[in-house]
């Protein structure tokens, strides 16, 4: 039973992701009330924040797999770490774009340096884009796995330190104009938010497994070709 479940993990995950996403979109549209202050534009929040949180989850997952590369000499973990960071960067770009659109509605500008989250994601984007540069300029092998794993571990140290630094930076670059009003979500808003976060995580997990399966298939085929060419 568990074995069958394991083999069918990806289709099940995809079905769950579809169902959750449909429910999330419906509840964003019909259950969550229109925000009293920001109006309709606040609805971006239900996608923007879950996407950002999912990107963090990917970076953390990538770092965890990187730790396993260094610690347990787990060779499969190298590919998993790479795929997780790859997905994290995609979600990071989505965060930047949806955040930028939200900034345009709320503050009338496409980019706001005073938005800590956006600036942090820009820094992380640059950092993890360099990860790909590193990965593609080293020949595949145990050394590349090590280098990439060390770099991925630096990422999880960088996230909190940068967050702190960027918060501090707002004080001297310019005083905070847009104060974020804390979590004043009503029950129905919170419900829609949680549902949408769950949907995003399920979507992310299925994309991760699809990408991983593709990459593994690719390397198996390469092996097969080598065996047949002999």
């Amino acid at each position: 039973m568990t074995r069958a479940l394991r083999q069918q993990r990806l289709p099940i995950l995809a079905v769950v992701a579809c169902a959750l996403m449909a429910a999330a979109i419906a509840s964003i549209a019909y259950v969550a009330p229109v925000d009293a202050n920001q109006g309709l534009s606040q609805k971006i929040f239900y996608f923007h924040v879950p996407i950002a949180l999912t990107a963090y989850a990917f970076f953390a997952w990538g770092a965890w797999k990187a730790l396993r590369v260094l610690w347990k000499r787990d060779e499969a973990a190298d590919l998993e770490s790479y795929v997780a960071i790859h997905q994290g960067v995609i979600f990071g770009v989505l965060t930047l774009v949806t955040g930028s659109i939200w900034a345009k509605i709320s503050w009338g500008v496409w980019w706001a340096w005073s938005s800590n989250q956006l600036v942090l994601f820009l820094v992380l984007f640059l950092f993890y884009a360099a990860y790909f540069m590193l990965r593609y300029s080293v020949d595949p092998g145990p050394q590349r796995a090590n280098l990439c794993a060390v770099y991925a571990l630096f990422g999880v140290a960088l996230i909190p330190v940068s967050f702190l630094a960027i918060r501090l930076a707002n004080d001297f670059i310019h005083p905070t104009v847009f104060t974020s009003n804390g979590p004043q979500m009503s029950g129905r808003m919170f419900f829609a938010f949680c549902l949408s976060w769950a949907a995003m995580l399920a979507l992310a997990a299925s994309l991760y497994h699809v990408e991983l399966a593709g990459k593994r298939l690719d390397s198996r085929l390469r092996e097969l070709r080598e065996v047949l060419a002999r």
């Binding site: 950092f127 360099a130 540069m133 590193l134 960088l158 940068s162 630094a165």
Partner: peptide, 12 residues
């Protein structure tokens, strides 16, 4: 490669 790796890390 070095500047690409180094600059994002030293922003803090």
């Amino acid at each position: 490669l070095l500047p690409l790796l180094f600059l994002p890390l030293v922003i803090p």
